[in-house]
Amino acid sequence: MTARQALRLGGDRIGSLGSRVTAALRDLTVRPLSLYSAAAMRIGLAGLYVVHLLRELPHADRLWGPGSPLTPELFDDTLRARGWDGAFGWWYGLLSTDSSLVFYAWYAVALAVAVLYALGWHTRAMSPLFVFVVVAFYIRGTSANSGWALLSLLFANYLVAVASGRRWSLDARRRAKRGNAPSRYVFWGEETEELRRRAVTVLHNAGLGVIALQVMVIYTSAAMYKIRGASWRDGSALYYAMMSDDFSTFPELSAWIVSHGTFTAVMAYVTVFSQVLFAALVFNRRLKYVILVVMLSTHLGIGLFMALPMFSAITIVGDLVFLPTSFWLAATALVRTWREPAAKPGERQPDTAPDSVPDPGPDTGGSAGKAQAGTRAEVS
């Protein structure tokens, strides 16, 4: 091969790579990714917050209300000491009141917002309102917040940019009934509307990317802290964690598990290595589900044996961002199969109509042109 042929071959490869990169970047502006994962995260986060508010309702007065040890006067002093009494001071002190009636009125509003957000009712309006609620409760309970509260706050903020109402929502049902009828709320030209659609798509994909990055940072940083500890290096960390009175749901069962020293040591190493390698393995098509199952097992173990159910649940919600659309379509088809009544002996199964096949939506399209067409029909 001559030098000219080598240069021509290299130029062709560079041109092919450049065209693929350009197509991928163009695809990110017209094809919203992982719409089912976004919907699952919305339902999971808002549903957990509903459970949280209902579970803490008997103790709400002591946690965030007038009966809290952090009295409204002391809370206002805390805001001033931290420099939070500026333009958003009214927001941060929303729950700081001496009136039980006012407090429980805001509590009812927060519960209603979380329920409507989980149902996907006017999701674009509900998502910032949900953040409004979460931030108010987080700041008011600043002296008793946990990892669950912090992660719920972060995910709620990130989901504002995500189009989480395109699937499994009341908004999606309303759009399906409307069909291909044009939206009544378009007040500008087609070019401006196309620019708006692409901006929404870019924000959606960027929001999912930030959530994925946040989850990877959580796992990697947790692994780095574990590696620094001698108990994790010698495999005895789970023994001390499960034998702690503060983190023990079933003391007898925990004692029986830690009596098998080799098993607990192996589980400790599996926990560390799975967190270290998570960011590298989760993007591999073959190993993605393996590492996600390992992390799911870890979270379930933490929630069951260490009395941290809300923290385990919110981390599982974060992991949902890595599940592809093909997984959700397969799961949906499986659920529909289970829900179908069994055919009686000798009864002929009806043929499946073409329109009964679930629409994969624009997030599973192949080319940018098909994705753009799907996005135009779906983005409102």
Rank of each mutant, 00 (worst) to 15 (best):
I14S: 13
A144L: 14
R196F: 13
I257Q: 03
V317W: 00
Y92K: 06
T352H: 14
L70D: 07
P309D: 00
A23D: 14
R233E: 07
A108P: 04
Q372Y: 11
A176Q: 11
S326V: 10
R336S: 08
S169P: 06
F75T: 07
T364H: 13
S274W: 04
V21N: 08
S367R: 06
I14T: 13
I316T: 07
L9M: 12
T271Y: 03
V186P: 07
A313I: 04
R376I: 12
R348H: 08
T192L: 15
R62C: 10
Q214F: 06
S259V: 01
Y158M: 10
I211A: 03
V379K: 09
V160F: 09
N180W: 09
F88C: 12
W148A: 11
P69Y: 03
D319Q: 12
I218G: 01
L300V: 10
A3E: 14
S236A: 08
M310K: 08
V50H: 02
V335G: 10
A330M: 04
R20K: 14
P66S: 07
P72H: 01
F103H: 02
L323H: 04
A23H: 06
A149P: 04
S254K: 04
A368L: 08
S297P: 05
F103M: 05
L9R: 11
L323W: 06
L119F: 10
V160Y: 09
G165N: 02
Q214Y: 09
H59A: 15
S68R: 01
V202N: 04
A265R: 15
I211Y: 01
G18M: 07
T271C: 07
L253E: 07
L53W: 01
S274I: 01
G303S: 05
V186A: 10
I257K: 02
E194M: 09
R80H: 13
V282L: 06
S96M: 03
L54M: 13
A108K: 06
I302L: 11
V357D: 08
I314R: 00
S231Y: 07
E190P: 11
W121Y: 15
S231V: 08
G189I: 05
M216C: 13
D85I: 03
G369N: 15
P251H: 02
L48A: 04
V258I: 10
G189M: 07
G303L: 01
K344M: 13
T262L: 13
R167V: 02
